[in-house]
Design a binder for these strands. Structure first.
Lengths: 107, 107
DNA sequence: TTAAAATATGAACATATGCTAATATAAGCA
DNA sequence: TGCTTATATTAGCATATGTTCATATTTTAA
């Protein structure tokens, strides 16, 4: 057996701090019903902040806060059109996991 | 097109309360570093509560609490051997998602 | 430049979460 | 039975989280 040149495995059993942080943050984003509903709404098309608030019966402020959260994790992005911001999802991997899990939950 | 006898789709755009709850609970379980570390440790083999505590440098109480959390969601199960309980994972789907996401985080 | 529309931000609040110490339970064995 | 080991439980605490109200910012257009 020879040592790989790509990576050195000193402790194969432990996750490093950074990986642990990224992974837990990602799942934390999906661990709240409001954020799941927002991401679910954005599955197929973009929506403005007010549209999201209307569709999901949430306060504009709530939506804005959660979108900021999701944007910090690069799970959504937006496009500006005048004073309106159209949000859409921005992470195929995470969206895929969410879709999978919703399917799974629906049996 | 005929109506399926299995399910009626009244509002395709909205997730029902129960699905929302299950999905968010599942992700909440994965949204904490300690629980990720425990599940990650259990990827390949079973461990007793004390072994988990030692390996991960956690208090016995902390491990026991988190295992209860994970067991309530049927993410782990245990087998008794005398006074010792050996825990192992119990949800291939969730373990798969966790593996995927760790891989993804490691680039 | 001023008003209107859309969105973002900050502060306050209630609730949720995770860890810890102390103690309770449960099983095996002398 | 009484002791030991392994695990679970309870309560308390500090911090994190999610929502809301009030207000600030930003962009556009008159």
């Amino acid at each position: 057996m020879e040592e790989s040149s790509e990576e050195v495995f000193t402790d194969n059993d432990n996750l490093d701090e950074e990986t642990l942080f990224i992974v837990s943050q990602t799942f934390k984003a999906l661990g709240d019903p409001t954020r799941i509903r927002i991401l679910h709404l954005l599955f197929n098309k973009e929506y403005s902040v007010n549209e999201i608030a209307e569709k999901l019966q949430l306060k504009q402020s709530t939506v804005s806060h959660q979108l900021r959260f999701l944007k910090n994790l690069r799970l959504v992005k937006y496009r500006r059109a005048g004073t309106t911001l159209f949000y859409s999802h921005d992470d195929q991997h995470v969206i895929g996991i969410l879709k999978q899990t919703i399917e799974h939950a629906l049996h």
